[in-house]
C-alpha cells in the first residue's frame, strides 16, 4: 500500500469509530436519521458492486431487501436475531442465484425492466401468501433498541464499502468491467461471464437482505406492499447514479445527499421529494453519467493529463 493508501485507511477507521460513537451524542430522532443514512449507504454500495461494475442495471433490489425482511419476520422469536438476520441475507443471495440464472442472459433495458417485473411479481406473491395465511401485516414486539440497530447497520455500511473496494481491485471486478464493456470479447479472453455475473449478483443481494431484516426490526411492522416497495429499488439506483456508481465514494455521497433531501422534504412534501429524485435521475443519466464523484475527479485531474491521469472508468490497480 502507498502512503496515501495508509492515510485514507486511517481516515476511514477514524470515521467509522466516530460514527460508532454517534449513539452517545445523538438523540432518538437524529440517530434514526443516521440509521437511514447507513441503510442507504449499505444498499447503494451493494448495488454498485454489481450493477455499477457490470452495467447490468438492477431495478429490482427491493426484492432482496423485502425477502430479507420477510425471513427475519417469519423467524421472529423462532431463531435468535444474530442468526435470522444473516439468514435473511443468505436467502436473498440464494434468490439472486436462482433469478440470475435465467435473467442475466437478458441484456440492456430488457434486464432493467425484467428485474423490476420480477420484484413486483414476488411482492404480489408474498401478498397472496400472507393473505392465504390470514395475515394482514405482522407486528413485532420487543425488537432491539435503536442503538443496537444503528451499530449493526453501521457495520453493514462499512462492510458494503469494503466489499466494493475489494471487488474493484480483485479479479472479479476486472471481469465485471470487461463484461460491461463487451461481453463477447470478455469471454474470448477467458472470462466465464455467467459465473462472474451470477456470483457478483448474489454478493450484491446479500447485504441488502440483511439491511431489510434490520429495517423491519426498526419499523416493527411487516407489510409486504411496504417491504417490497419498488420505490426502494428506484431510490437505490438514483442514489448510486447521483454519486457515481463505480467508486466507493459515489454511493456514499449520493446517500448523504438523499438523506439530507429527505430530511428537508419527506415528511412535509413526499411528492416533491419524489419529483426531485426523478428529475435528478434523468438529469444525471443523461448529462452526468459519471456521477458527482466522477465529475469532481475529472475536474480535479483535468489540468494534468498524461500517465497519471486515469480514466474514471478504469480498473483500479493496486501498486
Amino acid at each position: 500500500m502507498t502512503r496515501q493508501g495508509w492515510q485514507t485507511g486511517l481516515v476511514l477507521v477514524a470515521a467509522t469509530a466516530l460514527a460508532a460513537a454517534l449513539p452517545l451524542a445523538l438523540g432518538t430522532y437524529s440517530l434514526g436519521v443516521a440509521l437511514d443514512l447507513m441503510m442507504w449507504i449499505a444498499l447503494a454500495e451493494s448495488w454498485a458492486m454489481f450493477s455499477g461494475l457490470s452495467g447490468y442495471v438492477s431495478l429490482g433490489h427491493a426484492v432482496f431487501y423485502g425477502v430479507g425482511a420477510y425471513v427475519t419476520v417469519l423467524l421472529w422469536q423462532v431463531l435468535p436475531l444474530w442468526f435470522s438476520v444473516p439468514l435473511g441475507g443468505l436467502t436473498a443471495a440464494a434468490l439472486a442465484l436462482l433469478l440470475g440464472w435465467p435473467c442475466l442472459r437478458v441484456r440492456g433495458p430488457y434486464f432493467v425492466i425484467l428485474t423490476l417485473g420480477i420484484s413486483e411479481f414476488i411482492k404480489y406473491a408474498v401478498i397472496s401468501t400472507e393473505a392465504a395465511l390470514g395475515r394482514n401485516g405482522r407486528l413485532l414486539i420487543g425488537t432491539p433498541s435503536l442503538t443496537v440497530l444503528f451499530e449493526a447497520m453501521l457495520a453493514l455500511a462499512v462492510l458494503s464499502m469494503a466489499v466494493l473496494q475489494i471487488v474493484r481491485s480483485a479479479r472479479l471486478g476486472a471481469g465485471l468491467l470487461a463484461i460491461r464493456e463487451d461481453e463477447v470479447a470478455a469471454e474470448a479472453v477467458g472470462i466465464n461471464a455467467t459465473a462472474v455475473k451470477l456470483s457478483a449478483f448474489a454478493m450484491s443481494a446479500f447485504i441488502p437482505g440483511m439491511v431489510g431484516g434490520l429495517m423491519i426490526l426498526r419499523s416493527t411492522y411487516f407489510e409486504p406492499m411496504q417491504a417490497f416497495s419498488p420505490t426502494t429499488s428506484f431510490t437505490i439506483v438514483t442514489v448510486a447514479i447521483l454519486g457515481g456508481s463505480d467508486t466507493v465514494a459515489g454511493p456514499l455521497l449520493g446517500s448523504l445527499f438523499l438523506v439530507l433531501l429527505s430530511e428537508l422534504l419527506w415528511t412535509r412534501a413526499p411528492e416533491v421529494y419524489m419529483i426531485i429524485l426523478g428529475v435528478l435521475l434523468v438529469a444525471f443519466v443523461l448529462f452526468v453519467p459519471e456521477g458527482l464523484v466522477g465529475r469532481a475527479g475529472r475536474f480535479l485531474r483535468a489540468p494534468k493529463p498524461g500517465p497519471s491521469s486515469r480514466d474514471h472508468r478504469a480498473v483500479v490497480i493496486e501498486p
Binding site: G55, V57, L59, G108, P109, V112, I113, L116, F234, V237, T238, I241, E271, V272, M274, I275, L277, G278, V279, L281, V282, V285, L286, P289
Partner: peptide, 19 residues
C-alpha cells in the same frame, strides 16, 4: 447514452409525472 439507459430515463420521467 439514452439507449443504454432508456429504461432509467423513462422510469424517472414516469416517477416525475406521477408525483
Amino acid at each position: 447514452r439514452v439507449e443504454a439507459n432508456s429504461l432509467l430515463v423513462f422510469f424517472g420521467v414516469s416517477v416525475v409525472i406521477q408525483n
